[in-house]
Amino acid sequence: MTIGRIAPDFTAQTTEGPVTMSQFRGKWVLLFSHPGDFTPVCTSEFIAFAQLNEEFVKRNVQLLGISIDSNPSHLGWFYDILQMTGIEMPFPLIADRDANVAELYGMVNPDRIYEQSVRDVFFIDPNQRIRAILAYPATNGRNMYELLRLIDALQVSTTYGVSTPANWMPGDPVIVPVAQTLDEAILRGTDPESLDLNCFAWWYCFKDISELTPVNP
């Protein structure tokens, strides 16, 4: 599975009943796998996802977990987390017992020696296109704030047709597309302020997001 492809549709059993990927069309989806229920790092991640669920909801993001554990295992694990922390999981977790969904998304890779150690994350846009993919090992939990930051960056790029630089945070200036004509390139090089741009070169220009017009509202 690669960035830019349409997310494969599927029907799967979850802790909230059957779901399909296509039912989430119109929303961003964060499809994330974990190595196994009743494990410490995964438990810390699910608690963190639950605690920040409202932040994902504000961004029109549906969280959707997946592992090869059974649905009874998922439910028992969620119950233990509720008993330990008082936190109820506000999103579904897929029971992919036969790894059908994992295979659709390329999570099952014969080149991966330690298959059970992979934590994949797929960022899927409202048109069901895969926009980003991340992978983590079993030993290291995901940073939820980085996942939120990447969602913010992807949404800004989609809405305004711009790019985000290294270490970009919401509210920071963004990179505008390169000049499309010689006249525009010359103007960027000689008088970028007239275009409300901060240019270091005609091909390397930034703009405050507050001054941008949406291209995909």
Results as ranks from 00 to 15, higher is better:
Leu31Lys: 01
Phe32Pro: 00
Thr20Ile: 13
Asn100Met: 06
Lys27Cys: 06
Leu75Asp: 03
Phe24Val: 11
Thr85Met: 10
Glu45His: 09
Ile68Arg: 07
Ser44Arg: 10
Phe123Arg: 05
Ser117His: 05
Thr39Met: 05
Tyr114Thr: 13
Thr43Pro: 01
Asp98His: 13
Asn60Lys: 15
Asp111Arg: 07
Phe56Arg: 06
Val108Gly: 03
Pro40Val: 06
Gln116Thr: 04
Asn127Trp: 11
Val29Tyr: 00
Asn100Phe: 01
Arg97Glu: 11
Glu45Trp: 02
Ile81Pro: 01
Asp69Phe: 00
Met21Phe: 05
Glu88Arg: 15
Leu75His: 06
Asn71Val: 10
Ala48Glu: 12
Leu93Met: 14
Leu93Trp: 02
Leu30Lys: 00
Glu45Arg: 10
Ser33Glu: 06
Val118Gln: 04
Asn127Lys: 15
Tyr114Trp: 15
Lys58Tyr: 08
Leu104Met: 14
Pro90Met: 13
Asp80Gln: 07
Asn53His: 15
Ile113Ala: 09
Ile94Tyr: 00
Glu115Thr: 15
Thr39His: 00
Thr20Phe: 10
Asp125Gln: 14
Ser117Ile: 01
Phe78His: 07
Pro126Leu: 12
Gly26Thr: 14
Glu54Ser: 13
Asp111Phe: 06
Asp69Glu: 07
Val121Asp: 04
Gln62Asp: 07
Ala95Met: 11
Val121Gln: 06
Glu55Arg: 13
Met107Phe: 05
Arg97Met: 12
Val121Tyr: 01
Ile81Val: 08
Cys42Asp: 01
His34Trp: 01
Glu45Cys: 07
Asn127Val: 14
Asn100Cys: 06
Leu52Tyr: 08
Ile113Asn: 09
Phe49Leu: 11
Val108Trp: 02
Ser44Pro: 06
Ser44Ala: 14
Pro35Gln: 10
Met89Glu: 04
Leu63Ile: 14
Gly36Ile: 04
